[in-house]
Deep mutational scan, measured.
Amino acid sequence: TIDDAFRAIERAIQAENEGRYREALKHFLDGGEMIVTAAEKEASQKVRNLLLHKGKEVLEWAEHLAEWILE
Protein backbone atom coordinates (compact mmCIF):
# COMPACT_ATOMS: atom_id res chain seq x y z
CA THR A 1 0.00 0.00 0.00
CA ILE A 2 0.97 3.63 -0.25
CA ASP A 3 1.16 3.82 3.55
CA ASP A 4 3.64 0.92 3.56
CA ALA A 5 5.64 2.64 0.83
CA PHE A 6 5.94 5.87 2.77
CA ARG A 7 6.85 3.99 5.95
CA ALA A 8 9.66 2.28 3.98
CA ILE A 9 10.82 5.68 2.73
CA GLU A 10 10.76 7.06 6.28
CA ARG A 11 12.92 4.12 7.41
CA ALA A 12 15.25 4.80 4.48
CA ILE A 13 15.65 8.44 5.44
CA GLN A 14 16.35 7.52 9.04
CA ALA A 15 18.90 4.87 8.03
CA GLU A 16 20.60 7.29 5.64
CA ASN A 17 20.78 9.99 8.33
CA GLU A 18 22.38 7.44 10.67
CA GLY A 19 24.97 6.39 8.07
CA ARG A 20 23.44 2.97 7.38
CA TYR A 21 23.53 3.48 3.62
CA ARG A 22 22.99 -0.08 2.42
CA GLU A 23 19.94 -0.42 4.65
CA ALA A 24 18.69 2.94 3.37
CA LEU A 25 19.14 1.74 -0.19
CA LYS A 26 17.03 -1.34 0.47
CA HIS A 27 14.22 0.72 2.00
CA PHE A 28 14.30 3.29 -0.82
CA LEU A 29 14.06 0.50 -3.39
CA ASP A 30 11.22 -1.17 -1.49
CA GLY A 31 9.32 2.10 -1.12
CA GLY A 32 9.77 3.12 -4.74
CA GLU A 33 8.65 -0.27 -6.02
CA MET A 34 5.59 -0.21 -3.74
CA ILE A 35 4.59 3.21 -5.08
CA VAL A 36 4.94 2.05 -8.69
CA THR A 37 2.91 -1.09 -7.93
CA ALA A 38 0.18 1.00 -6.30
CA ALA A 39 0.18 3.35 -9.29
CA GLU A 40 -0.42 0.47 -11.68
CA LYS A 41 -3.59 -0.43 -9.73
CA GLU A 42 -4.88 3.14 -9.51
CA ALA A 43 -8.06 3.90 -11.48
CA SER A 44 -7.57 7.67 -11.69
CA GLN A 45 -5.16 8.65 -14.46
CA LYS A 46 -4.16 11.83 -12.62
CA VAL A 47 -3.37 9.98 -9.39
CA ARG A 48 -1.61 7.22 -11.34
CA ASN A 49 0.63 9.77 -13.04
CA LEU A 50 1.46 11.46 -9.73
CA LEU A 51 2.31 8.13 -8.09
CA LEU A 52 4.44 7.03 -11.03
CA HIS A 53 6.33 10.32 -10.89
CA LYS A 54 6.96 9.97 -7.15
CA GLY A 55 7.95 6.31 -7.50
CA LYS A 56 10.40 7.23 -10.23
CA GLU A 57 11.92 9.96 -8.04
CA VAL A 58 12.44 7.52 -5.18
CA LEU A 59 13.98 4.88 -7.44
CA GLU A 60 16.29 7.47 -9.02
CA TRP A 61 17.43 8.53 -5.53
CA ALA A 62 18.12 4.87 -4.75
CA GLU A 63 20.16 4.60 -7.96
CA HIS A 64 22.27 7.63 -7.01
CA LEU A 65 22.76 6.26 -3.51
CA ALA A 66 23.87 2.89 -4.92
CA GLU A 67 26.38 4.61 -7.20
CA TRP A 68 27.71 6.61 -4.24
CA ILE A 69 28.05 3.46 -2.12
CA LEU A 70 30.07 1.77 -4.87
CA GLU A 71 32.54 4.67 -5.21
Score class of each variant (00 low, 15 high):
Glu63Ala: 11
Glu67Ser: 10
Glu60Leu: 12
Glu23Pro: 01
Trp61His: 11
Leu50Asn: 09
Asp30Met: 14
Met34Asn: 02
Lys56Leu: 12
Glu10Pro: 00
Leu51Thr: 00
Glu40Tyr: 14
Trp61Pro: 00
Ala15Trp: 03
Asn17Glu: 09
Tyr21Ile: 04
Gln45Ala: 09
Ala8Tyr: 08
Ala12Pro: 03
Thr1Ala: 10
Val36Asp: 01
Trp68Asn: 06
Leu70Asn: 14
Ala8Asn: 06
Leu70Met: 10
Asp3Gly: 10
Glu63Tyr: 13
Thr1Gly: 11
Gln45Ile: 13
Leu59Gly: 01
Leu29Lys: 11
Leu65Lys: 00
Trp61Tyr: 15
Leu29Trp: 10
Ile69Gly: 02
Val47Ala: 06
Lys46Thr: 12
Leu25Cys: 08
Gly31Gln: 02
Ile2Cys: 09
Arg7Asp: 05
His53Pro: 02
Thr37Glu: 12
Ala15Ser: 04
Ser44His: 11
Ile2Tyr: 06
Arg22His: 10
Glu42Lys: 03
Lys41Arg: 09
Lys26Ile: 11
Tyr21Lys: 01
Phe28His: 00
Ser44Arg: 07
Gln45Glu: 14
Leu65Met: 04
Ile13Gln: 04
Glu10His: 11
Asp3Pro: 05
Ile13Met: 04
Ala39Ile: 09
Leu51Ser: 00
Ala12Gly: 15
Phe6Pro: 01
Val36Ser: 06
Lys56Trp: 11
Asp4Lys: 10
Glu40Thr: 15
Ser44Asp: 15
Leu70Arg: 14
Glu18Gln: 07
Glu10Thr: 12
Arg22Trp: 12
Arg7Leu: 07
Leu59Cys: 09
Arg7Ala: 09
Ile9Lys: 00
Val58Tyr: 08
Arg48Gln: 05
Arg20Asp: 06
Ala24Ser: 02
Ile9Phe: 07
Thr1Cys: 10
Asp3Gln: 14
His27Lys: 02
Arg22Leu: 14
Ile2His: 06
Ala5Gln: 02
Ala15Pro: 02
Gln14Glu: 08
Leu50Thr: 09
Leu29Ile: 11
Ala66Ser: 06
Arg48Cys: 13
Phe28Asp: 00
Leu59His: 03
Met34Arg: 07
Glu60His: 13
Glu60Gly: 08
Ala12Ser: 01
Arg7Met: 07
Met34Gln: 06
Glu18Phe: 04
Lys41Phe: 09
Lys54Thr: 11
Lys56Thr: 05
Leu25Ser: 01
Asp3Phe: 12
Asp4Asn: 10
Gln45Gly: 11
Gln45Leu: 10
Glu16Tyr: 15
Gly19Asp: 02
Leu65Ala: 01
Ala12Glu: 00
Glu63Gln: 13
Glu40Asn: 12
Lys54Ala: 13
Ser44Pro: 03
Glu67Thr: 08
Ala5Ile: 12
Lys26Asn: 05
Ile2Ser: 05
Leu25Val: 11
Gln14Pro: 00
Ala24His: 04
Gln14Cys: 10
Met34Glu: 03
Glu40Ala: 14
Ala43Glu: 11
Arg22Phe: 09
Leu59Ser: 02
Ile35Trp: 06
Leu59Asn: 04
Ala24Glu: 01
Ala15Val: 03
Gly31Asp: 02
Ala66Arg: 12
Asp4Leu: 13
Ala62Tyr: 04
Arg20Ala: 02
Phe6Asp: 03
His64Ile: 10
Glu16Cys: 15
Leu51Asp: 01
Glu40Pro: 03
Asp4Ile: 06
Leu59Asp: 00
Glu40Gly: 13
Leu65Gly: 00
Arg48Thr: 03
Ala66Thr: 05
Ala62Leu: 10
Leu70Asp: 10
Ala24Tyr: 05
Ala62Met: 09
Lys54Tyr: 15
Gly55Ile: 13
Phe6Gln: 04
Glu71Arg: 09
Asp3Thr: 13
Leu25Ala: 05
Leu70Lys: 13
Arg11Ala: 07
Asp30Gln: 14
Arg48Met: 06
Asn17Ala: 14
Asp30Phe: 12
Ser44Thr: 09
Glu16Asn: 13
Gly55Gln: 05
Arg22Gln: 10
Leu52Ser: 05
Ala8Val: 12
Val47Thr: 10
Glu10Met: 12
Glu57Cys: 13
Tyr21Val: 04
Leu65Asp: 01
Glu23Lys: 01
Gly55Pro: 02
Trp61Gln: 04
Lys41Thr: 08
Glu16Gly: 10
Ile9Gln: 00
Tyr21Glu: 01
Val58Ala: 13
Leu52Met: 08
Met34Ile: 10
Asp30Val: 12
Glu10Cys: 13
Ala8Trp: 08
His53Cys: 14
Ile69Asp: 03
Arg7Val: 06
Trp61Cys: 08
Lys54Gln: 07
Gln45Arg: 09
Leu59Trp: 06
Arg22Lys: 11
Ala24Ile: 15
Ile13Cys: 13
Ala24Asp: 01
Ala38Thr: 06
Ala5Trp: 11
Glu71Gly: 14
Ala12Asn: 01
Gln14Arg: 08
Glu60Ser: 10
Val58His: 01
Ala66Glu: 10
Leu70Val: 13
Asn49Lys: 04
Ala8Met: 15
Lys54Ile: 15
Trp68Asp: 03
Arg11Trp: 07
Ile2Arg: 02
Phe28Leu: 12
Ala24Leu: 08
Ile35Gln: 01
Asp4His: 11
Val36Ala: 07
Ala5Cys: 10
Leu50Gln: 13
Ile13Arg: 07
